[in-house]
């Protein structure tokens, strides 16, 4: 076969466009959804969180999360004035039924930190899977093929955020899907839908009209464990340095 350099260069852009459409894909349940148009993440506005646990209950109801396991949970931090590097963290039943009241403490501060899968762009959990059961979808969501998973729990150990667990009945890994079945239908996630204060917002970094872009320009936003270079896409606004 003789392909001249000239013809090769002419064909190259066409091949790129074709490959892009292959990568795009279209889930059957949402015919107007193109994976290549999205890059999902979440914004968590710490100063808005009231620790009501609505997100935890909504997640459990939406995704049939077994009791005692969490795809999302809320932690309450107490950072003492005299011991900044050793915060006291509680999360009773994942914060599902809220938190015990605290009176004003002259020492230090209290605040809530909702946690969930960070849907890392360079995810440690997908890198360690020996069978290709967990992966980052073309639209930036870390998912698990539960028909393929062996339940070896290697990914559970690899996740630096503790976001995975072995499902007690299915005996395979389970985690937050960022409500993939909802976001592909144009809905927001169950946790964001049910957050009464708007502390959680689904964000689409590839959508130029998403309000996240304006928000990021004017706020101090941080991800958890940035030193691990996981490419985490759960952005925390006003995150205290004591949060692990």
């Amino acid at each position: 076969m003789s392909l001249s350099r000239r013809h090769f260069l002419i064909l190259l852009p066409a091949a790129a466009v074709a490959w892009e459409s292959v990568l795009a894909g279209t889930p059957e349940s949402s015919p107007n959804y193109r994976m290549s148009d999205h890059w999902w993440g979440m914004l968590i506005d710490i100063p808005k969180c009231i620790g009501c646990g609505n997100c935890v209950r909504a997640c459990q109801a939406e995704n049939d999360v077994p009791d005692g396991h969490f795809r999302t949970w809320v932690e309450r931090y107490h950072v003492d004035d005299w011991n900044m590097t050793n915060p006291e963290v509680i999360s009773p039943d994942g914060g599902k039924e809220g938190f015990p009241s605290v009176n004003d403490d002259p020492n230090g501060k209290y605040f809530f930190v909702p946690k969930l899968c960070n849907h890392c762009a360079d995810s440690p959990c997908t890198q360690v899977c020996p069978v290709g059961a967990t992966f980052i979808s073309p639209d930036g969501v870390v998912l698990i093929d539960q028909t393929y998973c062996l339940g070896c729990a290697y990914c559970v150990q690899a996740c630096p955020y503790g976001c995975r667990y072995i499902h007690p009945q299915k005996h395979v890994a389970d985690k937050c899907t960022l409500c993939y079945h909802r976001i592909t239908r144009g809905l927001t996630t169950a946790c964001a839908e049910n957050c009464p204060t708007g502390a959680r917002q689904l964000i689409d970094l590839k959508n130029p009209n998403d309000p996240i872009h304006a928000f990021l320009k004017t706020h101090s936003v941080q991800v958890l464990k940035p030193q691990m270079a996981t490419g985490a896409k759960v952005y925390y606004n006003d995150l205290d340095g004591a949060v692990r």
Partner: peptide, 25 residues
Amino acid sequence: FGEYGHYRGATIVEIAARPVKYAGH
């Protein structure tokens, strides 16, 4: 398998087809 990467591409379709419990406001 291998449609988009080192995993079963149909998984994405299966997960997207799960039923919705919260209808949305």
